[in-house]
């Protein structure tokens, strides 16, 4: 969502700090580079942004500075790509990222009720994060799970054929 990403980037405090990563993580990053031809290391940008997000929780300025240096790009090149894609969080989010599909098949199969249930249980609106920093709820577009609607994704895990009971169990199981 372009407009929202812009809102967040406006809030970013820019710094020259460069993030540091363990040798294992740096090795993992290097392994991505081997997939692409010489001189085309920018291709690894999206996979590497996922690594940054996993390690740092979101796409922060020091992480971006690191990637720019690692891939020999301008810092603005990294921001340019990162801000286009909805899966990159341009601000810190909760520990568990609950992404509820709001598109048509889910919508007509009971998504509104699921959304209301989750949000009232957590006491937040879609887009919000609980005060304890445990949950963020985001509404997202079709996740390729329409035959098992309604559904949501927590991190990368799919949860399908949802009803209130399943949602309750799921929320209880996340610590």
């Amino acid at each position: 969502m372009g407009s929202v990403a812009t809102d967040y980037t406006n809030q970013i405090e820019y710094s020259d700090e460069i993030a540091e990563f363990s040798p294992e993580v740096v090795e993992e990053m290097k392994s991505h580079l081997t997939k692409y031809p010489e001189g085309r290391q920018r291709s690894a940008l999206i996979p590497l942004l996922f690594v940054i997000q996993r390690e740092r929780g979101w796409i922060d300025n020091p992480g971006v500075n690191f990637l720019a240096r690692f891939l020999d790009l301008e810092v603005s090149d990294v921001w340019e790509t990162a801000t286009f894609y909805t899966m990159f969080n341009m601000r810190p989010i909760g520990k568990h990222h609950i992404q509820i599909c709001k598109t048509l098949s889910c919508n007509i199969m009971g998504e509104p009720e699921i959304t209301d249930h989750i949000c009232s249980k957590l006491g937040i609106e879609p887009g919000g994060t609980t005060e304890d920093g445990k949950f963020t709820v985001t509404m997202v577009e079709c996740l390729g799970s329409c035959g098992t609607a309604p559904m949501l994704q927590v991190g990368f895990d799919f949860h399908e054929n949802l009803d209130r009971e399943k949602v309750d169990e799921l929320l209880d199981s996340l610590d």
């Binding site: 997939k35 692409y36 942004l49 909805t86």
Partner: peptide, 10 residues
């Protein structure tokens, strides 16, 4: 063969 991912953009 190599796998690659996007990051949320239809």
């Amino acid at each position: 063969f190599y796998t690659h991912t996007g990051a949320g953009a239809y």
